[in-house]
Computed example of a mutant assay.
Amino acid sequence: MNPADFLGHRDAVGTAVALLLLMMSVGSWVVLLWKGWLLKRASADMGRSTMAFWQAASLEDGLTVVRALDREALLLPLVEAALAKTPAGHLGAAGDKSQQLTRVLRDALHGVLHKLQAGQVLLATVGSTAPFVGLLGTVWGIYHALMGIAGAGQVSIDKISGPVGEALIMTAAGLAVAIPAVLGYNILGRFIGRIEADLEGFARDLRELLLTAAKP
């Protein structure tokens, strides 16, 4: 049975459930492909950018190198925030150098981590809800099929097996949508965790470097 025939046998609710599963599948695959490409580039850039920064002759040279190598702008916000001057008279300038650096690096790190986590909520939502959406389609499809059979006045295995089998397809479709989203969420989460650890380590080392350079 082709998709047009399948949808043609369903009412508005069944069609809406099928289209919802289709949108969830497309959305999750878009996120999977986009995040996979982004994290692959980010992982490669992190290693090159970090090594080049610590081999630079000065902080300014390190900033220039990071701007050239950090295509996904993961290290760059940390370096720019650490080297930026906080205007006097603001609460951000209160406290000693250590407190100021901790504040600006923490804020910059949170922004980068938010960028890395983009799309993870969608994958988690699809992975946890798609099976139940498919089950809803199955239950509604079976109910709709049985009501049609009851209205026809004749009950036989041939009249039951076809509509019920079509309804059960929705359960399989829900699982087919959910499984890639769950696997992708877990795999991408491991890559994100590694990058987060590297960023936190870089921020800590950068803070210690600037505090040492600020000592008289």
Score class of each variant (00 low, 15 high):
F53D: 01
V126P: 04
L101D: 02
V104N: 02
G89A: 06
S98E: 10
V126D: 02
Q55G: 07
D70G: 06
V79R: 00
A73R: 13
T64W: 08
A57Y: 06
R106E: 14
L101V: 09
L74E: 00
L122I: 07
T50A: 12
L109A: 07
A73Y: 06
A84C: 05
R71L: 09
Q99W: 15
S58E: 05
G89C: 06
L123K: 00
V65H: 11
H114R: 11
L91I: 11
L83D: 02
L113F: 06
L83C: 04
G119R: 00
L83Y: 05
T50N: 05
G95E: 08
A68R: 11
L83A: 01
L78A: 01
D107V: 13
L123W: 04
H114I: 10
A84K: 08
T102K: 03
K97T: 10
L109P: 01
K115L: 12
G89L: 06
V65F: 06
L74T: 02
Q99I: 15
G119Y: 10
A56E: 03
V121M: 07
V104L: 10
P77Q: 04
V121D: 13
L63F: 09
D107K: 14
A68V: 11
D61P: 09
V79E: 03
V126F: 00
A68E: 10
Q99M: 15
Q100F: 02
R67C: 15
F53P: 01
D70K: 08
V66H: 04
A82M: 01
L74P: 04
F53C: 01
T86W: 01
A93C: 08
A82D: 02
W54M: 06
L76F: 03
Q117L: 12
L105T: 00
G62V: 06
V79G: 00
H110E: 12
V65P: 03
L76T: 02
R67Y: 03
G62S: 12
L83H: 03
V121N: 06
Q99V: 15
T50E: 15
V112A: 11
G111A: 09
A118C: 13
Q100K: 12
E60A: 15
G119C: 08
V65R: 15
V79P: 01
V66C: 12
A124V: 00
Q117N: 14
A84M: 05
W54V: 00
L116F: 04
